[in-house]
Nucleic acid binder design. Structure first.
Lengths: 341, 341
DNA sequence: CCTTGACCCTCACGCAACGTGAGCCTCCAA
DNA sequence: TTGGAGGCTCACGTTGCGTGAGGGTCAAGG
């Protein structure tokens, strides 16, 4: 029962080269050589090879197989479980990819042979979203599931904004403010009211000129809308503040309002992780929050009180802007725990 | 808008090494270098990189991407379709593997920590079957889905055969013949009556000592059963033949009967492929069939006629042995088309 | 006895898409 | 002017073999 490589190869369905390779890496070293140097495999070698093939068929690497065969492993079931999990991960990944490809394929199916450019642009957008959002987030991001209606809605909003800008309408104009409010409400809806999603979306728009181009939202437009939104809120606060307070706030608020979204996002994440309000991380966020408030409202507690009253009484300030009741409550507790400074 | 590698890497989520690599293979060569040799990427380079990333996210190889971007490909949808198909193949393969692993895992789940050897033996058997049968065949092979009942049944049959052999009972003994008939019927059932499966199973048993050991069917046992089966058929034919004819047949039949299964398998495959009986391949098989018949029945047409009559009238010859009515009819036609020689 | 042809041997490069140093250069701020 | 961050070019490693190149071995046939 001495087999030469060729014979063993034929019997096992492997190639001679493969057996050479196994020899080289010490996985299966034939226990004999002929005088001429031919590899001679004995029954025990063949048995080992069968085990190797068995384990290979489970997708194990040659290194792992060698380790497993050479010393009695602690737990074989554990090995299998690992293999299963890895396989399931791969399958999940590939299924996702396939679904996406199929969707893409359908999208361009009617309307024969799309232009290369349209094609790639769509693809690029998809990969952009991939870079800024996790798959779970994408699932929760309505903007990503963009149906035609949503597209049209946004096109209209953008068009209006551009028109106002072209006409030189200032951001504190009533029309601009109304547009900004609608814009923000739509945006809130399309980010599922999640400030984390909003924040990432903002980051994406800020960093990727191509996204701006594709969506049609230039940096100017978004800045204009932001300012108009700020003005719409200022207009409300004005009714609660005296002249001096309002003048102060009017100067500072528009510059600092960009800082809300990331702060809200972080707060929301802590809330969802169930971090208690007195935890250091949350306390830090509360401090930053107060800091931001002071930066445009000054240090006078009386002013702060007025702003709080406005927030409570004005429906326009209550609605929307990614602040839920739970968030307000959580923030309130965190602030209450802050040592008086 | 000139970016250095590090910056571009950061913005795209790639590594510097990856960008170097793309440069090396000519996929993305920065359109500028600084005086110090630093790679400088312009807007157009960034755009190209975005496209590269988009296509990569579809699972395309760098080579393919390069080809696609450098000349306008004929059909992009075709590319995607290819990707989808490849993905589905991979997914199918991996799902199969996972199912198998899960099954294996469950098999050993109860009965804490199995012995490495049992483990590997089971696995080895699985890979053996894999080598001799296609996945579709395995699906159709009842023996492979071996439940406990089947196992016990075969253990019993093998035990009986071994006992008879030990006791020195000759294959032409009544008891041996009865056992052989039951054996063949069980085997027919467990190969789903498909001679192709039978043939491959035989090949596996003949070539793989380990399979014999695992199943407990030694070459001696299977030869004994074969001979007993031959004797059981001879006993029937005897009633139709004269003494001389039977003496001739008795001498030859046991030696040649091994040749039936492969011949039946080939014939069945032709039948299933819908090959007409007058096709050369089928004609060749018919010739071989007649040749085999002559080899143990002699050249006298009268003898052949007697055998045919026996086959028609004897239920024991009708039943089983992997010959269906359709097969008989097909073979009959093929023989009828043979030029008289 | 010599020649085929089928096998066998040992290098050693190739593949895909980078990861990971090593050794050296450049730039900018302190 | 010095230190640290970032850049450069080799060049080897990874995984599991495929694919020659160049050269022995062995049994059969002329």
């Amino acid at each position: 029962m001495l087999l030469r490589v060729g014979e063993l190869a034929k019997r096992t369905g492997l190639t001679v080269r493969t057996l050479h390779h196994y020899d080289e890496i010490g996985l299966l070293v034939p226990s004999m050589r002929s005088d001429a140097g031919y590899r001679l495999y004995r029954r025990q070698d063949v048995a080992r090879l069968h085990r190797i093939q068995a384990l290979r068929s489970l997708g194990m690497s040659l290194a792992d197989i060698g380790a497993l065969l050479d010393r009695p492993s602690p737990s074989l079931t554990a090995v299998i479980e690992r293999q299963i999990q890895e396989l399931e991960r791969k399958i999940a990944d590939q299924s996702l990819l396939r679904d996406r490809l199929v969707a893409l394929h359908q999208q361009f199916e009617n309307g024969d042979e799309p232009e290369m450019d349209d094609w790639l642009k769509t693809l690029e957008m998809m990969t952009m979203y991939d870079r800024y959002f996790t798959p779970q987030e994408l699932d929760r991001l309505p903007l990503y599931q963009a149906d035609d209606e949503r597209q049209i809605e946004w096109k209209a909003l953008i068009g209006e904004a551009e028109a106002l800008m072209r006409q030189g309408v200032p951001p504190d104009d009533r029309a601009a403010q109304e547009l900004a409010k609608r814009w923000m409400m739509t945006l809130e809806r399309d980010t599922a009211g999640d400030p984390t999603l909003l924040d990432k979306l903002n980051a994406m728009h800020a960093n990727e000129p191509e996204v701006q181009a594709q969506m049609g939202i230039s940096a100017q437009v978004s800045e204009y809308v932001m300012q108009a939104f700020a003005q719409s809120k200022l207009a409300i606060y004005q009714r609660y503040l005296n002249e001096e307070e309002f003048a102060f706030m009017r100067q500072r608020y528009p510059q600092r309002m960009h800082e809300w979204p990331p702060l809200m996002a972080k707060l929301r994440q802590q809330l969802e992780q169930g971090t208690p309000p007195q935890a250091p991380a949350v306390q830090q966020l509360a401090r930053e929050w107060l800091e931001l408030l002071r930066s445009f409202a000054g240090d006078d507690p009386a002013t702060h009180e007025k702003i709080r009253r406005a927030n409570e009484q004005e429906p326009a300030l209550q609605a929307s802007v990614w602040m839920t009741e739970r968030m307000k409550e959580y923030l309130g507790k965190a602030i209450a725990y802050l040592p008086a400074s």
